[in-house]
């Protein structure tokens, strides 16, 4: 029965010209809005909406980068560690050399990790899972080594204010992190849908052999993919670090990475590659962000929240597979 309901939905979606893949997460989002706004008077306030958007900005950026890796049929487990590394490198460098050099060093370090991932996957041809799992450990360790195992506090003024501006500032009404996230999302969407290398990502994810036999340099595409994923993680890490105005060697060791992968999947990008896109991912991030926000407002414990987010990941993939079967 679930299947026939789904079929109906797909047909309606097709008629009014929207991608049926986004029907699931959109429905979930709408349901959440209805339930939460009924249960909590605070949920629908401008203050709360802004909060959610600001808080989820780093995740949006990470997940946008992660989308590249999943579209290729791979994944990037090193994103969380990159966040930690960027945080400590930026903070430590900023102490002596100021924000400009600090930012360049921090972001550069993160991008370098992405590039190394890319070369290991694309040229040394090691499985993405293995490469990024190894890198997860190496970079998490490197972040601790670099900071001497403790957080870096007491950043000098005025650099620290600029640093914070990236993570929590405002331009008029618009929160800076949200603005940056929007620009990054637009950039990723443009690259994936409007540039040859972006289309090559889909081609490699859809069928690597075909891509290779069509004259695409598959290795180069993979390097690009992991460079993007790493760079996006670096920017997300920079932002998150600015918000806590310090260098935190464990900043990305929480469930940020899993949320990033989870959001891409909830958004409906296939883990086998070739299908999906960054706009779907944003929908996935919104589902996760509002879900967590609403549960917080209802004073439901973070432990219970984890159970629910996990269930949603499985549910969304299940709904997607039913949809595919019915079409």
């Amino acid at each position: 029965m679930a299947e026939s309901v789904n079929k109906g939905k797909t047909r309606i979606a097709a008629r009014i010209g929207i991608d049926p893949a986004i029907v699931g997460p959109t429905t979930a989002l709408i349901l959440m809005f209805i339930i939460y706004s009924t249960l909590s008077p605070y949920f629908l306030t401008l203050q709360n909406m802004t909060n959610v958007l600001v808080q989820s900005a780093p995740l949006m950026i990470l997940a946008s980068g992660q989308t590249f890796a999943l579209l290729m049929g791979g994944l990037d487990l090193s994103q969380g560690s990159i966040v930690s590394l960027v945080s400590v490198v930026t903070a430590v460098t900023l102490m002596t050399y100021g924000i400009e050099i600090g930012a360049a060093a921090g972001l550069g370090a993160g991008m370098l990790v992405g590039l190394v991932n890319g070369f290991l996957v694309g040229r040394a041809r090691i499985q993405p899972f293995i490469v990024t799992l190894g890198m997860l450990y190496m970079i998490a360790g490197a972040a601790l080594v670099f900071s001497g195992g403790s957080a870096v506090f007491g950043l000098p003024k005025p650099d620290v204010d600029i640093f914070f501006w990236f993570g929590g500032g405002f331009i008029g009404f618009v929160p800076v992190p949200t603005l940056i996230a929007l620009i990054m999302i637009a950039g990723a969407h443009f690259i994936l849908s409007r540039t040859p290398i972006g289309r090559h990502v889909y081609a490699v994810g859809g069928n690597e052999q075909v891509a290779m036999m069509s004259g695409i340099d598959v290795g180069r595409v993979k390097i690009f993919i992991y460079f993007m994923s790493g760079s996006y993680a670096a920017i997300g890490g920079f932002m998150l670090s600015g918000r806590v105005i310090s260098g935190q060697p464990l900043l990305g060791s929480g469930d940020l990475l899993l949320q990033s992968i989870g959001a891409v999947i909830i958004g409906g990008t296939s883990i086998f590659g070739g299908r999906g896109g960054v706009l779907r991912t944003i929908l996935g991030v919104l589902v996760v962000a509002f879900m967590v926000n609403g549960l917080n407002l209802l004073a439901i414990s973070t432990f219970t929240q984890q159970v629910i987010v996990g269930a949603i990941i499985i549910l969304s993939v299940w709904v997607n597979s039913l949809r595919r079967k019915s079409s």
Binding site: P196, R199, H200, N207, V210, I216
Partner: peptide, 22 residues
């Protein structure tokens, strides 16, 4: 396995080797 990417649309399969031209 090697000639055509089944999940890509027909037009992208056709333009794949010369995509830079567009």
């Amino acid at each position: 396995g090697q000639g055509i990417s089944l999940i890509l649309p027909v037009y992208e399969n056709i333009t794949l080797p010369i995509i830079d031209r567009f």
